[in-house]
Computed example of a mutant assay.
Amino acid sequence: MRTRQKDRDVPGPQTPWDEIVPGLWMGGHYWTDTAGELQLAVAGDEFDLVVSLYAAPGHGPAPGVEHLVAEIPDAPLTAGQLADVQQLARATASAVRDGRTVLVRCHSGYNRSGLVVAQALVELGTEPAAAVELVRRQRSLWALHNRVFEDYLAVGLDVAALLTGLDTPA
């Protein structure tokens, strides 16, 4: 069984999710076990807030757990999608500041979740390059391998949204 989408040439994650900083977890809906088999990552009630950038039925979270969903592609984003990322990153950072446990997830827990987690770290006072390095160290070297997302973080999401918005017809 393949563990990644057909258009991907990177290995699947070896864990469902990983803690990036205390209280802030990053992961996906799928992971690969030690036998190389695809496994479902189902969030129950172990988190106070789950932020999903990709949604699939049956993956949780449990009833009563706050769940924010904004499906975005693992591709260049529109100004509106970048605004969604900023909003989710602010909500994530606020929850972490309040001592809540947060899971940010996408399909495999590499790019989309990495973008939101890194931006949340920026909101919490980490420099963008250090945030990217921390995400990669804690989750996977494959995290944020989408160079466009890394560029968004480097330039700042406000600037990226403004520049992206220039291509939008009035």
Rank of each mutant, 00 (worst) to 15 (best):
R2G: 03
R4H: 09
Q5I: 01
K6Y: 10
K6E: 07
K6H: 09
D9F: 15
D9T: 13
D9A: 13
D9L: 12
V10Y: 14
G12H: 00
P13K: 08
Q14T: 13
Q14A: 12
Q14N: 06
P16V: 02
P16I: 00
W17A: 12
D18V: 05
E19Q: 14
E19F: 10
V21L: 15
P22V: 04
H29M: 08
Y30I: 03
Y30K: 05
Y30V: 06
W31H: 14
T32D: 00
T32E: 10
T32L: 02
D33P: 08
T34C: 07
E37M: 04
L38V: 02
L38C: 05
L38P: 03
Q39K: 13
L40D: 13
A41K: 00
V42Q: 11
A43M: 11
A43D: 04
A43I: 14
D45P: 05
D45S: 15
L49H: 05
L49Q: 08
V51Y: 02
V51N: 08
S52H: 05
L53M: 08
Y54F: 12
A56I: 14
G58W: 14
G58Y: 14
H59E: 07
G60N: 05
P61L: 03
A62I: 06
P63A: 11
G64I: 05
V65E: 04
V65K: 07
E66T: 13
E66R: 13
H67A: 08
H67K: 08
H67V: 04
L68H: 10
L68T: 07
L68Y: 11
V69G: 01
A70F: 11
A70P: 01
E71A: 12
I72G: 04
P73Q: 05
A75W: 12
P76N: 11
P76Q: 10
L77I: 07
T78I: 07
G80F: 01
G80Q: 09
Q81M: 12
Q81D: 07
A83R: 13
V85R: 10
A91W: 02
T92M: 06
S94I: 00
A95G: 11
T101A: 09
T101Q: 13
T101L: 02
R105D: 08
R105A: 11
C106A: 09
C106W: 00
H107E: 08
H107C: 06
S108Y: 03
G109M: 08
Y110I: 08
N111M: 03
R112V: 02
G114S: 11
G114E: 03
L115K: 00
V117G: 03
Q119N: 14
E123C: 11
G125H: 08
T126Q: 09
E127I: 01
A131N: 00
A131R: 05
A131H: 02
V132R: 09
V135I: 04
R137I: 00
R137W: 00
R139W: 06
R139K: 14
R139T: 14
S140R: 10
L141N: 06
L141R: 14
A143G: 07
A143L: 02
L144F: 03
L144C: 03
H145S: 15
H145P: 00
N146C: 07
V148N: 11
E150M: 10
L153M: 08
G156Y: 04
G156V: 00
D158E: 15
V159L: 14
A160H: 06
A160N: 13
L166G: 13
D167Q: 07
T168G: 00
A170W: 12
A170R: 15
